[in-house]
Design a binder for these strands. Structure first.
Length: 577
RNA sequence: GCGGCUGUGGUCCAGGGGUUAGGACAUGAGCUUCCCAAGCUUGUAGCCCGGGUUCGAUUCCCGGCAGCCGCACCA
């Protein structure tokens, strides 16, 4: 059994991750989060919120998971996210149709499917495997399509990423932030991709959760005011150059920016925050690296892009986060599609003075003279440079005809104008997190087995911050005199909003093991000394050691331990074993 | 989507054209002053789905679904 099998088996058995629709045979690429998985996922998302909403001052929004067609025309998902496929009629092999004619047509992407098929037929392209005839082209789009309202008139698509919600709300977000850069907006939610062949469990899903931030910044200033907070952080980087040499480098974030390895401070800042988030969530530092996209794998508009990759036992290095400088591509696309103005007015530090030629055609006279053509003449006059306006007569060309204009009909002068700022389209830094992949990676990186008295002990060493069961309350035996105080303690802990597991079944050792396996960090045990001395024990998951504390103090101590405000060894007196 | 392998209680596995499908672990109830998967008593729970062959199918055949591996695909 490899690690993946062990972890997935545990996750299924103990209620973290279940195949969806199992009752009806299931469907590939869909999973349920069970009673422990759902709180674990929420814990990871809440930690993400702490990092990317609270501490950065970004806002969280929530948009529909179904989008109208224009959004995905603009984003490129409608055209770029679908592949033209063709199938061999003999051996049923499937090919990307455009790939088959690459050597004939330079830009096959530009062709319609019928045209690709014609090129295939005219150039005698056959199945590369068996030489058989190829079928007509059919489109496979990775977006789930649906229809909005009755009649099938308005198509809708399940969103393939949450990012577009932030882009299409840009004008309102800008106003929310009172017309100033930089600002950020985030969204945590489901996205959908109709993958051809989802494999690898929760790594490749058809419905998955993303946490994405879109940070809108001034393209002229990509420094970051809080860069100093992360400059000394050491990370494992796998840069473009490093990939060519086949080696990773340990480096501080500051050094990476100084050497030009990471494009600029702002990108590096969020790479660093990503590192902190992942390690606090429970990703192992020595199985985490940041890999830079090579030029040919990066989208053409992107300036720089770094993926956080984790090392998984079965799958090798897997991408779990992408942090990209997408420049102004997305906003420009939506400007073109929607005709809306998605710019920000940026004042200059100092107003600039500029000389400007102002041309004023005398419309009172030009109007009667040229009637319908007057506007075209005036436009042509206004486009002329100074020298041409000084001629007598002034020559302009309107609709291919040369027209002579009396200089008396037009006045012009140089005006000194003060320019206080300019309209710009912000650049976007996009950290994009795959929550499901992170959750699985946290499980695998937290899982360990150790030998205890000849038995294998399985432990999920989850971080307190994300753990689904925070504390177990266990009477030493299922007897009334122990059960009563144990139930009382469980009630008290629940009263503090802790997620408590109360368990009185079987032997105490078995219950410790069960809780170890799902990561419960602390177990409170009620024994006969509780009745005699008024104390209980707290057991630490990782060390298996126990301390004894007063019953009345156990709740506050457990809370302090969970928050990391108290060391375990200092929370009570050690239990003689 | 193609090919190969696989599908039996919650988990892991055994089995087999014919009465009641077997084990281990897990799990419920009970006993036990018992702190690391102990013990005893006693329960619950299964042949992936559909069709075919057959007197009879969990077993054989076909299809579907799911899992694993390979190919293809992967903004």
């Amino acid at each position: 059994m490899d690690m993946y099998e062990k972890v997935i088996e545990l996750a299924r058995r103990r209620g973290f991750i279940w195949p969806a629709f199992e009752l009806y045979g299931g469907a590939a690429g869909f999973y349920d989060y069970g009673p422990l998985g759902a709180p674990l996922k929420r814990g990871i998302e809440d930690l993400w919120r702490a990092f990317f909403v609270i501490r950065e001052g970004f806002c969280e929004i929530e948009c529909p998971t179904i989008g109208v067609e224009d959004i995905y025309k603009a984003s490129g998902h409608l055209s770029g996210f679908s592949d033209p496929l063709t199938e061999c009629k003999e051996c049923s092999e499937i090919y990307r149709a455009d790939h088959l004619i690459k050597h004939i047509i330079e830009v096959p992407d530009a062709l319609a499917n019928e045209e690709i098929y014609r090129v295939i037929q005219e150039n005698d392209v056959f199945c590369p495997e068996c030489g058989g005839d190829l079928s007509e082209i059919y489109e496979f789009n990775l977006m789930f399509k649906t229809f909005i309202g009755p009649g099938g008139k308005q198509p809708g698509y399940l969103r393939p990423e949450t990012a577009q919600g932030m882009f299409v709300n840009f004008p309102r977000l800008l106003r929310h932030y009172r017309d100033r850069l930089p600002f950020g907006a985030v969204q945590i939610g489901k996205s959908y991709r109709n993958e051809i062949s989802p494999r690898q469990g929760v790594i490749r899903l058809r419905e998955f959760s993303q946490a994405e931030a879109e940070i809108f910044i001034n393209p002229r200033d990509k420094t970051h005011p809080r860069f100093g907070e992360v400059a000394d952080l050491v990370m494992t980087l796998y840069s473009k150059g490093g990939q060519e040499r086949g080696e990773t480098e340990e480096m501080t974030v500051g050094e990476a920016v100084d050497k030009g390895i990471i494009a600029h401070e702002t990108l590096a800042y969020y790479v660093a925050r990503t590192y902190q988030f992942l390690t606090e969530a429970g990703i192992s530092k020595d199985r985490l690296r940041f890999r830079q996209h090579k030029d040919d794998e990066m989208a053409h508009y992107a300036a720089d892009c770094w993926d956080a990759e984790v090392l998984l036992d079965r799958f090798g290095w897997i991408e779990i986060v992408g942090v990209a400088d997408r420049t102004n591509y997305d906003l420009r696309s939506h400007m073109a599609q929607s005709q809306a103005n998605l710019t920000v007015y940026l004042p200059f530090d100092e107003p600039r003075k500029e000389e400007k030629l102002v041309v004023k055609p005398d419309m009172k006279k030009l109007g009667p003279l040229f009637r319908k053509g007057a506007k075209a003449v005036a436009d042509a006059l206004q486009a002329l440079p100074m020298e041409d306006l000084k001629q007598d007569p002034i020559l302009v060309e309107v609709d291919g005809e040369k027209v002579e204009i009396d200089p008396a009909l037009v006045s012009f002068e140089m005006v000194e104008e003060e320019i206080r700022g300019e309209e710009i389209v912000p650049h976007v830094i996009e950290p994009s997190f795959g929550i499901d992949r992170i959750l699985y990676s946290v499980l695998e990186h937290s899982y360990r087995e150790e030998m205890v008295e000849g038995e294998t002990r399985a432990v999920l060493a989850l971080q307190n911050r994300v753990v689904p069961i925070q504390v177990a309350v266990l009477p030493l035996m299922d007897r009334a005199e122990l059960v009563a105080p144990a139930e009382e303690i469980a009630r008290e802990l629940r009263g503090m909003d802790l997620r408590v597991e109360y368990d009185s079944s079987g032997s105490i050792g078995r219950r410790y093991r069960r809780n170890d396996e799902v990561g419960t960090p602390y177990s409170v045990t009620v024994d006969y000394e509780t009745l005699e001395e008024g104390t209980v024990t707290i057991r630490d998951r990782d060390s298996m050691s126990q301390i004894r504390v007063k019953k009345g103090e156990v709740a506050e101590k457990v809370l302090a331990l969970l928050k990391g405000e108290m060391k375990f060894s200092e929370a009570g007196s050690p239990l003689a074993s």
